Simulated assay, not measured.
Amino acid sequence: MATETPVRTRRAGAFDIRLIISLLTGVYGIVLTVMGLAFTDEAQLQKAAGVNINLWAGVGLLVFTALFVLWAVVRPIRVPVTEGDETPAE
């Protein structure tokens, strides 16, 4: 019976694509939320049938961002560590 050596892994960290996507959507969400709260006038609301589109889109993007960050924290991507890697394993 052959025993397998366990594969050492580490977290992908900043190279996790979910964190990059969440950073971008978070920035857009903040900008849209601020625009919806502070810079929307009555004429723009009339064009959108009384709905503050910037505010709701910004809030939606912030919720999406929070879910992506939660997903990345709860289920991190693990990459195998090779013998020559100098970075310490977690």
Rank of each mutant, 00 (worst) to 15 (best):
Asp85Ser: 15
Asp41Tyr: 00
Thr82Gln: 10
Ala72Ser: 15
Ala43Glu: 04
Leu45Gln: 04
Thr33Ile: 06
Thr9Phe: 08
Arg18His: 02
Lys47His: 05
Gly13His: 05
Asp85Ala: 13
Pro6Tyr: 12
Pro6Gln: 01
Val69Arg: 06
Val73Met: 13
Ile21Arg: 05
Arg75Cys: 09
Thr65Gln: 11
Leu61Tyr: 14
Trp71Ile: 01
Leu70Tyr: 14
Gly58Cys: 01
Pro80Asp: 02
Phe68Asn: 08
Arg78Lys: 15
Thr40Pro: 08
Asn54Tyr: 11
Phe15Lys: 15
Glu4Lys: 13
Gly84Gln: 12
Glu83Cys: 01
Glu90Thr: 09
Thr33Ser: 02
Arg78Phe: 07
Ile17Met: 13
Ala2Lys: 11
Glu90Tyr: 01
Ala2Asn: 07
Ala49Lys: 07
Phe64Val: 08
Met35Glu: 05
Ala66Asn: 05
Ile53Val: 15
Leu32Cys: 03
Thr5Lys: 15
Leu19Trp: 00
Pro88Ser: 04
Ile53Trp: 11
Phe68Gln: 14
Asp85Trp: 00
Asn54Val: 02
Gln46Cys: 00
Gln44Ile: 00
Arg8Asp: 10
Ala89Cys: 07
Gln46Phe: 02
Met1Glu: 13
Val59Ala: 15
Ala89His: 09
Glu86Ala: 14
Leu23Met: 14
Thr40Lys: 07
Gly29Glu: 03
Val51Arg: 03
Ala38Asp: 00
Arg11Leu: 09
Ile30Trp: 00
Gln44Lys: 02
Ile17Phe: 08
Gly50Ile: 03
Ala72Lys: 03
Ala48Arg: 06
Ile17Ser: 11
Thr33Glu: 01
Leu23Ala: 15
Gln44His: 09
Asp85Leu: 05
Ala72Leu: 10
Ala48Trp: 12
Ile20His: 15
Arg8Leu: 15
Gly84Leu: 07
Gln44Val: 00
Trp56Lys: 04
Leu23Asn: 14
Val79Ser: 03
Thr9Ser: 13
Leu70Ser: 11
Val51Trp: 14
Pro6Thr: 04
